[in-house]
Amino acid sequence: MRALDYALREGWASLWRSRGSGAFAILAITLAMIALGILLLVTWNVERLLAEWSSAAEFSVFLRDDASSEQRGEIEATIDRSGVMEQRQYVSKGEALARFRREFTELASLAEGFEDNPFPASLEVRVRPEAEADGRAIALVQRVAALPGVADVRYDREWLARLSSGLAAVRGAGLALSLVLALAAAVTVASVVRLGLNARRDELEIMQLVGSPIAFIRGPFVAEGVLQGGCGALMALGALWLGFAAVNLWWGAGLAMMLEDRSLQFLPVQLSTALVAGGMVVGGAGGFAASRHAV
């Protein structure tokens, strides 16, 4: 406890003494933590949206124009019995055409020229989130597709799967980049701390000769690294917040439309705290490496 208090006081004093080169180390940490922060922001938001979209899963069963009402009844019964369904709605051919005219007004003239109504009737089924997750939804879709009177089933999960695997790739690449930057930052911290350490060789020799415990000799250098890391991570957090606000300001409206009215969110408290803690760990590792040269 006394060693910690002493190390923090001395580490802070040392950081202040060498604030020129210290700023350099802090900047390195800031850059690494910005990279990590962007990665966290992107993956966290995409994961959150993915979860929401997955829970809002729907599939459409398109009926043949010649499907009988018994066949339609059998299809509906199969869906109802499966326990996968949350809600279902029948969309007749007429309604499908009307919907097309409403949603694609600029193509309305095209629809004028139709002799027959080309849109099939369909059943739109909203899936329970747990059925989506455990694969029962897929099983149902395959069963329904084989029933008489069904022209096609559209269960468009492929883009979600692609988004997930894309996210995994982004996460892998981002993590690798962040690790490299964190390593570079730790090395920078270590060299900066070591610079100050070398300037105090005489003092360190005296501390050793009078029998100062090792923790009191090395501790301040570790603390200096931790403080540099903490400052750098806090600055990164500030920069991320400003960047996030700017993105929302300029592209917020467009994003909201693209995301179907779901908004992007900044890192929650736990992740922000973890980011700062990560910066402190990286800085502390650099300080620790440098402190080995103190004794």
């Binding site: 050793q208 000769l209 029998g211 100062s212 090792i214 004794v295």
Partner: peptide, 10 residues
């Protein structure tokens, strides 16, 4: 290493 520092204090 710890004992060395202790020894030096004496």
């Amino acid at each position: 290493r710890r004992e060395i520092q202790e020894y030096r204090r004496g």
